[in-house]
């Protein structure tokens, strides 16, 4: 598919918008429907589209695989650490009110951060799912030999 001109062009135009939309969903979740999870899915989908159209090799060059794997962890870490921060600042685990002097501002900050964590993990899991499936095709037969050992 790499050589399909129209597709390439459409994708090149579309993908930035998808990413933009993902960011919108990410940070607008407080006011309308949406949030980290949906944003992560959309972001992931945008990237997967890139991978499908430009080939996974190119996609891997944009985002190296180990980095994606790390990012899946980073999201969880971020979420947990926000919770721990609440704990260290004198509240309970996941208590955002104590993050900032003003409890509502603290809640805002906390929600923003954890939604970000959700988004990061979801997006990177989606991308790694894609890579996993995409790569697997190439060693289908070889794998079946390994399995019988």
């Amino acid at each position: 598919m790499q050589h399909h001109l129209v597709l390439n062009l459409v994708a090149k135009i579309l993908i930035p918008f998808i990413i933009l939309f993902a960011l919108y969903v990410q940070f607008h979740g407080d006011y309308g429907p949406g949030g980290g999870f949906q944003a992560g899915v959309i972001f992931g989908a945008g990237f997967i589209l890139y991978g499908i159209i430009f080939g996974k090799d190119l996609a891997v060059r944009v985002v190296p695989l180990p980095l994606v794997y790390c990012m899946t962890a980073v999201g969880v870490l971020l979420y947990t650490l926000v919770g721990v921060a609440g704990m260290l600042l004198g509240g309970e685990f996941l208590n955002y009110s104590v993050l900032l002097p003003d409890s509502i501002a603290g809640q805002h900050l906390g929600i923003l951060l954890i939604e970000l964590g959700v988004g990061i993990t979801v997006a990177s899991v989606m991308i790694s799912l894609f890579f996993s499936y995409a790569q697997y095709t190439h060693r289908d037969e070889q794998q079946s030999d390994n399995q019988d050992r």
Binding site: F37, Y79, L94, I111, I114, V118, T121, V122, V125
Partner: peptide
Amino acid sequence: QIGIPNVVTSVLASYRGYDTLGEVVVIF
């Protein structure tokens, strides 16, 4: 208490934020 119009987000991220943490862990 939270000051966010979307109640679903408030509940999801704060009141039941621990569930959401679990949800992220499930995805992970």
